[in-house]
Amino acid sequence: MRYYRIDQLRFTLAIMIVALHGGFLKDTSPDLAYFINNGLFRIAVPIFFIISGFFYFSMNHQKKIKWSKKLATIYMTWSVIYSYFWFDFSHPISVRNFLYVINGYHHLWFVPALLYSAFFVVFINKFRVNKFVTIFLLFSMGFILQHAVFNDYIDIDNVNG
Results as ranks from 00 to 15, higher is better:
Asn37Trp: 04
Tyr56Lys: 00
Ala33Lys: 02
Val18Phe: 14
Asn60Gln: 10
Tyr75Asn: 05
Phe55Thr: 09
Lys66Cys: 05
Asn38Thr: 08
Gln8Phe: 13
Met59Tyr: 10
Asp27Met: 12
His61Cys: 09
Phe24Ile: 10
Met16Glu: 02
Phe11Met: 14
Asp27Asn: 12
Gly22Pro: 01
Lys26Leu: 12
Ser58Tyr: 09
Leu71Gln: 07
His61Asn: 12
Leu71Thr: 06
Gly53Met: 05
Trp78Asn: 05
His21Ala: 07
Asp7Lys: 02
Ile43Gly: 00
Met16Thr: 02
Phe49Glu: 01
Phe11Ile: 13
Leu9Thr: 03
Lys63Phe: 09
Arg5Glu: 15
Phe35Asn: 02
Tyr56Arg: 01
Ile50Pro: 00
Ser79Tyr: 12
Ile50Thr: 05
Asp7Thr: 04
Thr77Trp: 10
Leu9Pro: 00
Ala14Tyr: 07
Gly22Ser: 08
Met16Ile: 08
Trp67Asp: 12
Arg5Gln: 14
Ser52Met: 07
Trp67Thr: 10
Phe48His: 10
Met16Ala: 08
Leu32Lys: 12
Trp78Val: 05
Leu20Arg: 05
Ile17Gln: 04
Asp7Cys: 08
Ile65Thr: 12
Lys26Gly: 03
Leu9Ser: 08
Pro30Met: 08
Ser58Met: 10
Lys64Val: 06
Ile50Lys: 00
Gln8Thr: 12
Val18Thr: 09
Lys63Tyr: 13
Asn60Ala: 09
Phe48Ile: 05
Ile36Pro: 06
Ser68Gly: 03
Thr77Glu: 01
Asp27Thr: 13
Ser68Asp: 02
Asn60Trp: 08
Ile51Ser: 00
Ala44Glu: 07
Leu25Val: 09
Ser58Cys: 03
Leu40Cys: 08
Tyr34His: 14
Phe57Asp: 06
Ser68Cys: 03
Lys63Trp: 04
Arg5Lys: 13
Ser52Trp: 01
Tyr56Pro: 00
Gln8Tyr: 14
Asp7Trp: 03
Met76Ile: 15
Asn38Asp: 11
Asn37His: 03
Ala14Asp: 07
Ala44Ile: 07
